[in-house]
Every structure is written in structure tokens, then in C-alpha cells.
Amino acid sequence: MALEAMRLAVPDLERLARELRARIIETSSATDTPHLGSCLSCVDILVAAYFHTLRLDTIDPRNPDRDRFILSKGHGAAALFQVLATRGFYPVQLLETYGEDGGLFAEHPPTPDRLAGIEAATGSLGHGLPMGLGMALAGRIQGRAYNVIALLSDGECNEGTIWECAMMAAAQRVQRLCAIVDFNKWQATGRSREVLALDPLADKWRAFGWSVVEADGHDLGALVSLLSRVPDGSGLPVAIVAHTVKGKGVSFMEDDNNWHYRIPKPDEVAAAKRELGVTA
């Protein structure tokens, strides 16, 4: 059995998060890949999940007992691709083909048969969480004790299927399903509380029958402790409303929605890396 959770210590996770942020920014600049702000806001959540809690098998990525992580906010793929390579699903060098014609790394995750570590091809919002519910129900039917984690954006919570899924997961009391909302308060073209009436977001999940916690989505200690408590004993699906900052980690990108689509120039990449304390 090669299933394992890495359980790295918090200082190691923090160092890894800084390095991954630097690589994501470099890749965005080198390959004209947008959604940088969305990627940077979820790096800590990905790091906590992949390098601490998730029980994964990089030798047999389809091991039926593995935990599943679904990037329901598929536009964060540039972050996920870096994380999967670093976690050992494929060589980091493969990422040098990022954005190349005929390559694998598009702006959104490909299907699982194309790239090790991917659980669902997302990009159209509102699909990942319901697919995750199907996987969690399958685990229950098959008697397998794996968790399914789906990472959502706050903009994604505009989609009706998220709330259809929330009701079904609660009705079925699927306690091995966890939805994390990367609540960075922005969507593509505006404040997420203004585009649609998103607030109070945690109360909405609670009202839909989920066990809800709010957390600082950049506090790796808090994140690993919450992720380690799924299922949390309530018998309900778990929602983590993670308060995040879009563009987190680089002062001139933080909470500036221009970085949803903007591509950093070389001098901005250098400045960002200095701030992150990453020299290589």
C-alpha cells in the first residue's frame, strides 16, 4: 500500500507555499496564462491539502482508496499543476511544456486519463462539487473510507448546481465530502457580494445543512487542523469558508482584481520573487 499523507510541518508548508507562488508567477509571465490572482489566493489551501492531509498514491494515482481533491474552480489550474508536480505525480520539468501547442497544460485541468493526479476536468464552474458528491457516494456504496475535497471559488457559488448539490449532500449526510470556498471576495468582473448577493456565505452553507467553519485561508496551521477533521463527527458534509486575499503574497497584486486577467512583466516577476523571498 503506497497510500500516504505527507504531513509536513507548518514551517515547511509555508516555505513550499512561497516557492510555489514564485513558480506560478513565473509561469504566468512566461506563458501568458491569466487567472494569476485566483491561483495565488488558493495556494495555501492546495499546499495544506496535498502536502499534509490528503492520502495519495503517486505510484498508482488511481488507487481506489485514495482521497480525492477536485479543483472545482478550474481556473486555478496553473496552481494545481505546480502542486501536482511538486507532490511527485509527474516531473517538474514536464511543466516546461506549459501552454505549448499539442501539450497537456491548458488553462484548465485536463481529464484524469491525461494527467496523473487530476480527478476531474473542470473549468466550467459548478461541476466539480457535484462530481465530488458522486465520488463520495461511490465510496460509501463500495465501503471505501476516502475523503473527497472540492475547492470552490466564491464566484462559483453563483451556480445553481452548487446549491442543488449542497441540498443532496445534506440529505444523504455525506460526511466524507468537504467543500472549501476560496472566499477572496472577487469574481471576474466585480466584488462577489455585489454581483450576486453572496453574503452571508457561511450562513448559507449552514442553512443548507452543512457543518460549517470559517478560517483564514492563508493560515496553514489552521487549514491543516481543519482538513484533518474531515469527517468532523457531525455526520454532515463539511464546508470550510476560507477567507482569502486575491493575489495573496505579492503586495502589488493583493486584492487588485486586475490580476484576474493581467500577465506580469519580467520586472514585476522579479519584484514579486523578492517579496516572496525566493531567489532561484
Binding site: P64, P112, E119, A120, G126, H127, P130, M131, G132, L133, G134, M135, A136, L137, A138, G139, R140, I141, Q142, G160, T161, E164, C165, M167, M168, A171, Q172
Partner: peptide, 28 residues
């Protein structure tokens, strides 16, 4: 009984749930 789900009047979710099951070795 463990393999019947009334998914309610929520067909979009139902279809994605089925896809997730199919990706996990079931035949929904």
C-alpha cells in the same frame, strides 16, 4: 437500497453526481 438515489428536482446536479460515480467504478 444502497444503490437508489432520489436526487430531487435538480437534474444538473444529478447528472454530475452520476459522472462522479462512473469515474469511481460504478455504472450509474
Amino acid at each position: 437500497p444502497q444503490r437508489f438515489f432520489n436526487c430531487g428536482v435538480a437534474e444538473g446536479n444529478m447528472m454530475s453526481v452520476a459522472a462522479g460515480m462512473a469515474l469511481s467504478g460504478l455504472r450509474p
